[in-house]
Design a protein around this nucleic acid. Structure first.
Lengths: 208, 208, 208, 208
DNA sequence: TATGAATGAGGATTCATTCAT
DNA sequence: TATGAATGAATCCTCATTCAT
């Protein structure tokens, strides 16, 4: 009763963004109907237009929100890559596992597919996702690896290359096993992929 | 002049398939207009429907043709991975470069994006591409790596894991630099990616 | 000026129903274009679809409305068949004339032709027209004849048969002279048909 | 082997006409597809166009053939109305029954419905059917009734009116019971309708 | 702001018809 | 003549968007 309206506004905006992402991911931008999104959000079609000028803008905003969300979870994983002097392999596996879990989240796959789908039509979307999530996460990972190199826990090498390859060793095999996200990857497989990635990474970048 | 008509049918079918793939890749399945495809193929819209019952089927067939094409070029690359007793790093770099070139081909990116885009709507497409190209190429690569392991040129390891990781070390960094195929990768960068991939791969899987 | 909007909805619905019946009758269901109907109704094509889900449903509803209309006029005629103790022949001729006028109305012929036309495709249409108009009118006519029999003004006979035959003696010859409704029947001919029908009817069913 | 071709031509023409009438009656002119007709006739679509210039002409010709057929059967019935000095009621019932059987033939209903359906678009069709069947049969019936009047077996009256009413007393009730031809009329009902018609007819037109 | 109604532009698909063999 | 292929026009229906309340 204290905050009926200001809250309601925000809730509606959120509901629409959520619905939009869900529907866009499920049906693709062109196929997705604004009425479907409105229905899924529980509002009238015109309300969607009141909040987000047009369909294209709605896509942009829903992707932006989704990228921000992905950034937060990915960063949480990367930030755990802090040298506490313990077992490096165990640390990498823990971080790798957490990253892999992020990648395998349904919304993450959806974002990637949606991005790939609409990239040709809306190239700015890649800038949004890169600028808000992908590049920043990659840089943060490179930062952490650089510190491990400096600390002598990894051999000296280009940290960006190392970061890209670490990520690639996770996402490549995962994409295959998850059938681009259309199939859940069992925990055991996920751990295997992570273990293989870390093993190769350490053979290539391990100190000494 | 020698082959007026029987050729015509096949030519038309081919022209439509090509046009379809181009337009689907450029605009996405839902956005793509059958009239646009017909125009691009230089036939009447109804002719498209005579050859390919409906739009969905046209997508399936154009993806199938595209997968077959991709399979041929990728296999040509993998088959060069034959131990001639020479420098293994050079051999891997040559094969890696050829594979990387395949991946960076515009049609290859287009196929991947289109696949990602329509996967949610048409899951069978992934089966088509996997069954006709991806899995077969991966297996062939694993086969070649297995023989190198057997010959003692690589350490003993699971060849499928090795193959997946080799591919991942190429595609991951390439996807990033090519912005999922929307930007051409300069030859120098491509060579750098390949060199990095081979370097890491050899550190991880090299013999002795 | 008093009733700006709420009226608008209903007006539009009515306009569409009228236009639909006109166009369906003129061109047949399959040939009729929804755009033509919309234009005739003065609304946008999509508005037709907003009100009546699809073309088939629009046919059903427009036939229903038309049947209701026909029922009203026909019943008004039948209800005048009330024994006021006067000249029976004159009474029958008056009622017959009014019925004949109903039958010869352009909309009535149109309904019959449309019904015949689409019966093979949409058998339910006959149920609609029978249930809403034809059967009810025939029963009402039989009721009135039964009372005349009971009152001794007609000989005792099966009232339904008598009703059917009375109607047949009107519609049969009228259909011929009106060329199934494509030609107007001059008033003189109409009176002649009615007189002949009543004459035969009274010879067959007159009392004593 | 003696007459492969000349026969084949005629057979094909016939097959197409039959198929056309069947399909037109089943689906209506506009809805009927020329390919469907061709398929039903077992020929290629273009062959239909070789024989019958266009769809409209095919309709005209198939209706003409159908009208000729109907004329033959109806005339056979009317011609039995010959005063052999015997029981007039029995004679009328026999002829009435035969006529009723003609009317209740599936092709006859189909012709009537098709005619009603396309009358608005192709008014000449009514002239064809009238000129080739309806009017001629009605005139022949009037002729026979005139002779019965002259012979004193029926009272003197306008023979055309009598003929029209005799027909109407059959077709009216039959149309109702057959649901315009969509439902078969059991033999018992048919006999009842005929008996009622003859009864009324004889009360109205019987001698003395 | 939230909504129900209205719309115009567009898209998949069908079909009568023609052409070349 | 009989056919398979090709086509252009038409048609149903959808959908992003706007307007009036």
């Amino acid at each position: 009763m204290t905050e009926t309206r200001p809250r309601g506004r925000i809730d509606k905006r959120h509901a629409i963004l959520d619905a939009a992402f869900t529907v866009f991911a499920r049906e693709g931008y062109a196929q997705a109907g604004v009425d479907v999104i409105a229905a899924e959000a529980g509002v009238a079609k015109a309300t969607v237009y009141n909040h987000f000028r047009d369909k294209e803008n709605l896509l942009r905003e829903s992707i932006t929100a989704s990228a921000d969300e992905a950034f937060a979870t990915n960063m949480a994983a990367v930030e755990r890559l802090t040298d506490s002097g313990g077992d490096l392999r165990a640390l990498l596996e823990e971080v790798g596992h957490q990253l892999a879990t992020c990648y395998c989240d349904a919304k993450s796959w959806a974002l990637n597919r949606l991005l790939a789908a609409e990239l040709a039509q809306f190239p700015e979307l890649l800038d949004i996702v890169d600028g808000r999530a992908a590049t920043r996460v990659a840089e943060a990972l490179a930062d952490r690896l650089a510190r491990l190199m400096l600390a002598g826990r990894l051999r000296s090498a280009d940290p960006r290359t190392a970061a890209d390859q670490f990520a690639a060793l996770l996402t490549g095999p995962l994409a295959k096993r998850a059938r681009l996200g259309t199939k859940p990857v069992p925990e055991a497989e996920l751990r295997e992929v992570v273990a293989n990635a870390v093993d190769t990474f350490l053979r290539a970048f391990g100190a000494g």
